[in-house]
Design a protein around this nucleic acid. Structure first.
Length: 807
RNA sequence: GCCGGUGUGGCGGAAUUGGCAGACGCAAGGGACUUAAAAUCCCUCGGGGGCAACUUCGUGUCGGUUCGAGUCCGACCACCGGCACCA
C-alpha cells in the first residue's frame, strides 16, 4: 500500500508550472522583503552540499516571508566573477578567464536551479559585465573626487605566490588569506581607499544592526579605536622632537626610555656616529624579516641610537632605542616606555638593563623586586611630582587634557584600522579608471567614457615585478590626457576582488539601468537588504568594505540609507564525513547532484536543514538523508489516504493542527530550522497513528500541515495542495495562525515528585485547582508517603507537583 | 596571552529558558510480511543491580544556591574559533 512518492515526476511538473506562472510576483502594492545570499564566485569545482545549505536556508526564509505578511520577496543571484580564484583557475586550465568563467557560471547556474529556490533570473548580475563594472569604476571616480582614493608609495604586504599586494584584511598570521604563502613587504606605489575616514561611523553603525554579536565584535576589534594622548619629547642637544602616542598618559613620569620603529623617519638623524653601524645593521635585518617572523618571534631585540630625549614632564634624560616591536604604521611609530606598567616595555628593559620606575602603587604600596609589569590602571599615583596621590584610573581620563594645557602634547584617538590597499597587479579585475599625465598628474577617466574596458591580452600571467600584465599592452596604456590632451598613460593596476562585491546588492533591483548604479526611486523602494545569509569568513572583509561603500554612497546622495544589511545570518559549514573541511585535495567533497537525482530536491533540502543547527558546523553523513526521505514518503502516504477518505475532524486533530502551527512558526522565527523539521516528523508520526485508527486525518489539518511544510519542501507540498482541490499555489496561502485555546490540552500529564525526584505521572484536567492537583498527587504516591511527614507542597500548574518529605 | 563559543547515549542532536534528561533522526539488535531479498510495519536500545513490580548512578570536573539544576552562581579542565608586540 505505501509506495514511495515519485519525486522526479512531481518536481519536474512543478518546476515547469512555476516557470510558466511565477509565484513571487511584484504587483507594486505588496511590501518588499529583500533576502540575499552572498553571491558565489563561479569556481570550476561547482557547488557542494555546503553551498547548498546556505541557499536552502535562505530560500526557506524567503518563502516563509512571502507567505507570512504577503511580501514581494527579492531573492536574487549573481556572480562574483572577477578576482584571483577565477584567474588562477583559468591559468591552470589554460583558457582565457572570460571563457572559463562563463562555462563555470552556466554549470553552477544549473546546480542552483536544482535547489528549487524562488529566483528571479531577470535580476542576475555578473561583476565582470562591463555594464556592471562601469559603475564599480564610477564609484572609484567619485571617491577620487572626494579625496578618498589616493596614491601612496609605502611598504606593502606582498604575496609571492599570488604575485600581488594584499590588504591588511587579507593577511592572516603573516600569511596570504587565500593561498597560505608567507607574505613579505614590498615598497610599491599603490592606490588606497581612505576607509579610516569612516572609522567612527563604521563603529557606531554596528549598534543598530541585527547581526551576530561575534561579527560585530570582530569588526569592533578590527577598527580598534583607542583614546589617549600624543606627547612630544624634545631630543637632547637638537631642535627635533619625538612624538609618541600613548593610552596611558597617567604613567608619563615612569617613562625611562623610548623606542622608535626601525622605519621611523628620525632614525638616521638621531643615530650617533658610534652607533651608526649597529643601527644600520639592525634596520636592515628588520626589513628582511618576514611578516611571520615578526609576528611570531616575540623575543625582544633592539639597538641604542646613542641619543637621549627629555621627558617633558620631569626633565629626565631618556635614551632612545630602536626595536621592531614598535610598528611604523600605528600611532606615530614611536613610543615612550614605562617598563613598570607595560609588559612589553618591561621585557625590553629587563633584556637591556634599563631603569624601571614605578608610578602606580598597587594597594598603596610600591612592589618590591618587581618580576612583571603592573598593567592595571588602578592604584595611587607615586613618584610623579604634582600628580602624586591621585587615583590612576582618574588620572588616565584627565591626563590628556592636562598635557594639552601644558603644551607638551594633545588628546588623541587612534585606530588599528588602516586605509585599504586597493590595487592589484593582476589581469582579471576592473581596470582602475585613472590616466597619468606628466602635466596634470592623476586624472580620472571622464564619466561618459566609462567603463574602461579590460583589454584582451596575450599573456595574462602575473609578473614578479609588481607590474600588472596590462602594462605590457602599449597601445592600451598610451592614451591622451582628458585634461590637457597631451600624451598620457593609463593606470595598469586592477581592483581587488572585493570591489564588485562591495556594492552588488544595490544593483540587483535595477540591473539594467544605464543612467545610474541604481535609481533613487528603486533604491528607496526596495533597499536595503533585510536579511543577508552567508558564511562567517567575510566578517571583516566583504562585510566591512560593503558598509564603507554604502556609507560613502549615502554621503554623495546616491542612496538614503547608510547600512547595507539590516540582519545577518551566518550559516555553519558542512564538513566532510570525518568532521574536516571539505576540500578537493582531501577528496571529501560531496556533490548534491546524485542525491537530488536519487532522493529528490525536497529530501535533500530537508536533510540539509535537519543535519544540525543552521549556525553550527555539521559533518556530512550520507545515511542521514534516508531518514528524511522516509519521512516524506510517510507523510505523502498519510496525506493521500486522508484525501481519499475525507475523515471528519476530531478534537484531537484540531488540537494537533493548532499545536503544529504554533510550534513551527515559533521555530521559524527563532531560525531553529533543524528542530522545525523534528517537529514536522513528530506530528507526522502522530498523524500516521490517527490515520491508522480513523482512516485518515481531516483535510483542514492536512492542508495546514502542507502549508507549513511548503517553504521546506515546496514541490511535494504544491502537489498535495493541488490534490486537496486547490487551483492556486500553496505559496499564495496566508501563513496559518494558531488559536491558543484550541491548541491547549484539556488533560495534562504531570510528574509527581518526592524531594525533587519523579515517582509518578498523573493525568489531570488543565483547569484543576491547586487542591485538586495535590489530592491527585498524594493518591499517586500514597504508598511512599506512609510513615513520612510532608514538610512542603509545591504545585506549578500544568508543570509539576513536588512533595518535600521527611521521616 | 586576551576575547568569544562549545562540552549531553554508539553517532547527529532535543529539552517550551529552573520543572519527567536523551525529543526527532541515524546506526545496531530482535520480530512480522515474503520462496527469498528490498521496501514496509511492530518491539528493544545511557550505565550498574534485580526473575520481577522496581532500584541506583548519570548532561566535561569540583563546589554552591534551590523543593527541584543540562539550564543559575563560583573555581577549574578540554576542544574549537577570532585577535595577537596596536603602546
Amino acid at each position: 500500500m505505501s509506495a514511495p512518492y515519485n519525486h522526479i515526476e512531481i518536481e519536474t511538473k512543478w518546476r515547469k508550472k512555476w516557470e510558466e506562472n511565477p509565484i513571487n510576483v511584484n504587483d507594486g502594492k505588496k511590501p518588499k522583503y529583500y533576502c540575499l545570499d552572498m553571491f558565489p564566485y563561479p569556481s570550476g569545482a561547482g557547488l557542494h552540499v555546503g553551498h547548498w545549505r546556505g541557499y536552502v536556508i535562505s530560500d526557506v526564509w524567503a518563502r516563509y516571508k512571502m507567505m507570512d505578511g504577503n511580501h514581494y520577496v527579492i531573492h536574487p543571484m549573481g556572480w562574483d566573477a572577477f578576482g584571483l580564484p577565477a584567474e588562477n583557475y583559468a591559468i591552470q586550465t589554460g583558457q582565457h578567464p572570460s571563457i572559463s568563467t562563463a562555462a563555470n557560471i552556466s554549470n553552477i547556474k544549473k546546480q542552483i536551479d536544482q535547489i528549487g529556490a524562488i529566483r528571479d533570473w531577470d535580476m542576475e548580475l555578473n561583476t565582470t559585465d562591463p555594464e556592471f563594472y562601469r559603475w564599480t569604476q564610477w564609484i572609484f571616480v567619485q571617491m577620487f573626487k572626494k579625496g578618498l582614493a589616493y596614491e601612496k608609495e609605502m611598504p606593502l604586504n606582498w604575496c609571492p605566490r599570488c604575485k600581488a599586494v594584499l590588504a591588511n584584511e587579507e593577511v592572516v598570521d603573516g600569511k596570504c588569506e587565500r593561498c597560505g604563502s608567507e607574505t613579505t613587504k614590498k615598497n610599491l606605489r599603490q592606490w588606497m581607499l581612505k576607509i579610516t575616514a569612516y572609522a567612527d561611523r563604521l563603529l557606531e553603525g554596528l549598534n543598530g544592526l541585527e547581526w551576530p554579536e561575534k561579527v560585530k565584535k570582530m569588526q569592533t576589534d578590527w577598527i580598534g579605536r583607542s583614546y589617549g594622548a600624543e606627547v612630544q619629547f624634545p631630543v637632547e642637544g637638537s631642535d627635533e622632537k619625538i612624538t609618541v602616542y600613548t593610552t596611558r598618559p597617567d604613567t608619563l613620569h615612569g617613562a625611562t626610555f623610548m623606542v622608535l620603529a626601525p622605519e621611523h623617519e628620525l632614525v638616521s638623524k638621531l643615530t650617533t656616529p658610534e652607533q651608526k653601524e649597529a643601527v644600520e645593521a639592525y634596520c636592515a635585518m628588520a626589513a628582511n624579516k618576514s611578516s611571520v617572523d615578526r609576528v611570531q618571534n616575540k623575543e625582544k631585540t633592539g639597538v641604542f641610537t646613542g641619543t637621549c630625549a627629555i621627558n617633558p614632564l620631569n626633565g629626565a634624560k631618556v635614551p632612545v632605542w630602536i626595536s621592531d616591536y614598535v610598528l611604523a604604521d600605528y600611532g606615530t611609530g614611536a613610543i615612550m616606555c614605562v617598563p613598570a606598567h607595560d609588559d612589553r616595555d618591561f621585557a625590553f628593559a629587563k633584556k637591556f638593563d634599563l631603569p624601571i620606575v614605578q608610578v602606580i602603587a598597587k594597594d598603596g604600596v610600591e612592589i618590591p623586586d618587581m618580576q612583571e609589569a603592573y598593567t592595571e590602571a588602578s592604584g595611587t599615583v607615586i613618584n610623579s611630582g604634582e600628580w602624586n596621590g591621585m587615583e590612576s584610573s582618574v588620572l588616565k581620563q584627565e591626563a590628556p587634557a592636562m598635557i594639552e594645557k601644558m603644551g607638551i602634547g594633545k588628546k588623541t584617538v587612534n585606530y588599528k584600522l588602516r586605509d585599504w590597499v586597493f590595487s592589484r597587479q593582476r589581469y582579471w579585475g576592473e581596470p582602475i579608471p585613472i590616466i597619468h599625465c606628466e602635466k596634470c598628474g592623476a586624472v580620472p577617466v571622464p564619466e561618459d567614457q566609462l567603463p574602461v574596458l579590460l583589454p584582451d591580452v596575450e599573456s595574462y600571467q602575473p609578473t614578479d615585478t609588481g607590474e600588472s600584465p596590462l602594462a605590457a599592452i602599449d597601445e592600451w596604456v598610451n592614451t591622451t590626457c582628458p585634461c590637457c590632451g597631451g600624451p598620457a598613460k593609463r593606470e595598469t593596476n586592477t581592483m581587488p576582488q572585493w570591489a564588485g562585491s562591495s556594492w552588488y546588492f544595490l544593483r540587483y533591483v535595477d540591473v539594467k539601468n544605464r543612467e545610474a548604479l541604481v535609481s533613487r526611486e528603486k533604491a528607496d523602494k526596495y533597499l536595503p537588504v533585510d536579511m543577508y545569509i552567508g558564511g562567517v569568513e567575510h566578517a571583516v572583509l566583504h562585510l566591512l568594505y560593503s558598509r564603507f561603500y554604502t556609507k560613502f554612497l549615502h554621503d554623495i546622495g546616491a542612496i538614503d540609507f547608510d547600512e547595507p544589511f539590516r540582519r545577518l545570518f551566518n550559516q555553519g559549514m558542512i564538513l566532510g564525513p570525518k568532521g574536516v573541511k571539505m576540500s578537493k585535495s582531501l577528496g571529501n567533497v560531496v556533490s548534491p547532484d546524485d542525491m537530488v537525482r536519487d532522493y529528490g530536491c525536497d529530501s535533500l533540502r530537508i536533510y540539509e536543514l535537519f543535519i544540525g543547527p543552521p549556525q553550527q558546523d555539521s559533518a556530512w553523513d550520507e545515511r542521514g538523508i534516508d531518514g528524511v526521505n522516509r519521512f516524506l514518503n510517510k507523510f505523502w502516504n498519510t496525506a493521500v489516504v486522508s484525501i481519499e477518505n475525507k475523515t471528519e475532524a476530531t478534537p484531537e486533530m484540531i488540537r494537533l493542527r493548532h499545536k503544529l502551527i504554533s510550534d513551527i512558526t515559533m521555530r521559524l522565527d527563532q531560525f531553529a530550522l533543524n528542530t522545525a523539521v523534528s517537529k514536522f516528523m513528530e506530528y507526522n508520526n502522530q498523524m500516521q497513528k490517527i490515520a491508522q485508527e480513523c482512516g485518515g486525518v481531516d483535510l483542514e489539518t492536512v492542508g495546514t500541515y502542507v502549508t507549513l511544510l511548503a517553504p521546506f519542501a515546496p514541490h511535494i507540498c504544491e502537489e498535495l495542495w493541488e490534490r486537496l482541490g486547490h487551483t492556486d499555489s500553496v505559496f499564495h496561502e496566508k501563513w496559518p495562525e494558531a488559536d491558543k485555546s484550541l491548541a491547549a490540552d484539556d488533560v495534562r500529564e504531570i510528574p509527581v515528585q518526592l524531594n525533587g525526584k519523579t515517582k509518578a505521572v498523573i493525568s489531570i484536567s488543565a483547569e484543576a485547582s491547586r487542591e485538586e492537583a495535590l489530592e491527585e498527587g498524594r493518591k499517586a504516591v500514597a504508598s511512599r508517603l506512609e510513615g513520612m511527614k510532608i514538610v512542603k507542597e509545591i504545585v506549578v500548574p500544568g508543570k509539576i507537583i513536588n512533595f518535600v518529605i521527611r521521616k
